[in-house]
Each structure stands twice: as C-alpha cells, then as structure tokens.
Amino acid sequence: MTDPGLPQQRLRVLLVDDQALVRLGFRMVLEAEPDLHVVGEAADGVEAVRLAVETRPDVILMDVRMPNLDGIEATRRIVAANPAARIIILTTFDLDEYAFGGLRAGASGFLLKDARPAELTAAIRAVAAGDAAITGRITRSMLELFADRLPASGATQQAADPTAVLTPREREILLAMADGLTNGEIGAKFYLTESTVKTHVGRVLAKLQLRDRVHAVIFAYENGLVES
C-alpha cells in the first residue's frame, strides 16, 4: 500500500518553443501543478533533440515553426531514438498541416497554443498515461483534409492482410477507432463495457505495434481499411 506521506512522483516535461515568453507561460502553469515538473527548455529543434536524450522527459511540448530544425523533424528524430517518447505538437490552428505532419512523425497529439491551463495539464497527463491528446474524430478530419498526402489506397498494403494478427472483434474495434468513436461509443455499438473496450484497444495497439489511438487511425487510412 502506498504511503500517503510519500511525495507523489512527478511527470517530467520538456518545453520546446523559440519564444521565451511562451515557454515561461507554460512553465508557470506546469510548475503550479504538484505532479508536473519542467526538466528543461529548448529554443529550437536541435536543442530539443539533445535535451530529450539528456533529460529523458515523460512528455515533450513541441512547437513546429523554429529555427535550425523544425518541430516535425525534431519529433521524427526523437521518436526514432526513443520510441517510447511522448510528444504533443503545439500549433495555432487545430487543422494545421504542421500538426498533421507532427502526428505522421510520431507525436501523440497536438494542442492549441492558446489552450486553457486545465486543457494543457490534462493533455500532458493523458499522453503520459498512453492515451492520445486529441480525439479520433479530429484525427480523422485531418486525414480527410490532407488525404492527398497519404499513400493511395492499398499502396502500402502488404501481400498479407496487415490486420491478420487481430481477432474479428479486434478488427471491428480498430475500424471503430478509425471512425473516431470513443470507448463509450464503441461499447454502445458492440454491447461491451468500457473496460472491455479498453482491453481490446490495448491489444490492437500492441499487436499492430502502434503508439496510440491516433496512430491506429493513421494505420487504418494508410492501409486502405477506411475510405478518406
């Protein structure tokens, strides 16, 4: 049993933005939370990659438009070096091609720079717990908007069905995620409890080696499982 007198383990967050005032604002919000701790700040992508290795943060808040190395390429390099890295792209518009590029590079979601403090802290906690920081519906909207950036349907399809490792129920869950349904909506559709749905989602992600629900939606589109 956990001793309530012991200090709570804090989530380690790395801030990446070329504007010092933006970083300061985020730091003030995060440091006011007992379970969050800023372990470093970077002003460009090159510094972000270096600090990601040095500080091993639980979550990285990543701007995209920066000098020397942009946030998308920095995200790609960080994820390549550490597949467990959890990155939230910071953007100005919710359907921004930079946010889309960040998701394709391996980010677990995106957040508007003017998000309320509660939204910021909730997104960090969600991503650290392995959940996506954006809904499946927004992911799907982005994929539809940028459909021309995706491979043509079937272009990345393997000789064997990429979902062959899934059970029929797990494949249904994958397609439901691709439709942007929440766990509650999936449960209602298939008459399952939310805990059962969560178990199925976890198995789908593990079997397909996907980082989170966002990348499950991307996987479904790239493999021609749903129509854009």
Rank of each mutant, 00 (worst) to 15 (best):
G5M: 12
A107F: 10
T2A: 15
I134S: 03
A43W: 11
V214Y: 07
F93D: 11
L143N: 04
M177Y: 04
K113F: 10
D114M: 08
V29E: 04
F146C: 07
I186W: 07
L95I: 12
M28W: 05
L174F: 04
L36R: 09
Q157N: 07
V214R: 06
Q19K: 06
E172A: 09
D148V: 06
T196C: 06
V226H: 10
E97D: 12
S195D: 10
V217C: 11
R10L: 01
V64S: 15
L14F: 03
A160G: 10
T196V: 15
L15D: 07
R65G: 06
F110R: 13
A164S: 15
R12N: 03
I186P: 06
E54F: 06
R169T: 11
G101W: 03
V79Y: 03
V53W: 05
I87Y: 12
T92W: 09
R56N: 13
L36E: 13
V217P: 08
I89W: 05
N68T: 11
R203K: 12
D212G: 00
Q8A: 14
A81D: 05
P168R: 07
E97A: 02
L112H: 11
G5W: 07
I88P: 03
E97C: 02
D96W: 00
A52G: 15
F146Q: 08
A129N: 00
V226A: 05
T199F: 12
V201P: 11
V22K: 08
M62W: 00
Q209K: 14
V64W: 13
D94Y: 11
L143R: 00
E54D: 12
L36D: 10
K198V: 01
P168W: 13
R86Y: 08
F190L: 11
H37L: 09
Q157D: 08
A118S: 11
A220V: 09
Q8R: 13
T135L: 13
P4V: 01
R12V: 02
A20E: 11
R140H: 01
L11H: 06
L112K: 10
D3Y: 01
V38C: 03
Q157Y: 10
P4I: 01
A52W: 06
T156G: 10
G136Y: 00
V79E: 03
K207E: 10
D35P: 00
P7C: 00
A132P: 06
V197D: 10
P4F: 00
G224K: 06
E172D: 15
